[in-house]
């Protein structure tokens, strides 16, 4: 079977998903606009909210596009495009894809050309992210009406819990990278160093607008160092 990752069929599915998201956004904007007028909000304020948010979103959206690019080597273009158009974020999609790939004895470090593994990764990414949507259907109304507000009283602990969960995930993958040899350690250290520089620039020098680019640029730097190192050593490291 030819490579299904970049097949016209998958691009068509991607276009359908993009259309779905566009229509939903337009329907919600129209509904909110109508209700806003009924409440007496001026058209100027509402137009400002729309245009302000649109401008605000351009740079982070380019960062999301770069995340699509990082996944494209393993999974082709359409699947990362679809996943980052709905529900996803790179910090979820990549670990989800990798753990699924590993269950099938492979890794997203290589191009996923086996159709069965590719479909398994698509299933894993999709099923893994459905839980929040189910919770919203069941609980969003009651949360909005205040019933569940009490449950998150201890915000300090819930914030720490998220950090701890991520730290478990990160430590497993960092350990894995250390076991991956010199090139893998170089990529890790380079991206960490670039992220640390971004951190300094954002926190110490006040360049807040760099925030959105910190993650994708750090990732691309790590990847670029790996490619350059392989080139310099004649492709022995991969």
């Amino acid at each position: 079977m030819s490579d299904i990752r970049n097949s016209p069929f998958l691009f068509t599915v991607g276009a359908f998903v993009a259309l779905f998201v566009t229509i939903q956004s337009l329907v919600f904007i129209a509904g909110a606009w109508k209700e806003g007028k009924r409440l007496g909000l001026s058209a100027t304020i509402m137009r400002k909210a729309l245009s302000g948010s649109a401008v605000f979103s351009v740079v982070p959206s380019i960062a999301i596009l770069l995340a699509v690019l990082t996944l494209a080597g393993a999974l082709g273009l359409p699947l990362p495009w679809i996943r980052l158009s709905v529900v996803g974020a790179i910090t979820y999609e990549l670990p989800a894809a990798e753990t699924a790939a590993q269950a099938f004895g492979t890794t997203v470090k290589t191009s996923i050309t086996d159709p069965t593994v590719f479909s398994a990764i698509a299933w894993a990414m999709s099923i893994g992210s459905v839980f929040a949507m189910i919770l919203i259907i069941i609980f969003a109304k009651s949360i909005q009406s205040g019933i569940h507000k009490a449950q998150i009283k201890d915000t300090a602990w819930s914030g720490l819990l998220i950090s701890a969960m991520f730290m478990g995930l990160i430590s497993a993958f960092l350990g894995n990278a250390l076991g991956g040899g010199l090139i893998s350690i170089l990529a890790l250290l380079s991206s960490a160093a670039v992220m640390a520089l971004f951190g300094l620039a954002i926190k110490k020098a006040g360049f807040k607008q760099l925030e959105n680019f910190a993650m994708p640029v750090s990732m691309l730097s790590g990847m670029a160092v790996a490619a350059l190192y392989a080139l310099a050593t004649g492709g022995v490291a991969s």
Partner: peptide, 23 residues
Amino acid sequence: ALKPAFANLMPSLFGALGVVFIS
């Protein structure tokens, strides 16, 4: 030429993410 770059996608993500969460 780009194969080693994509092969090191995971360490590149988690190196950066590690700095965020460790700091």
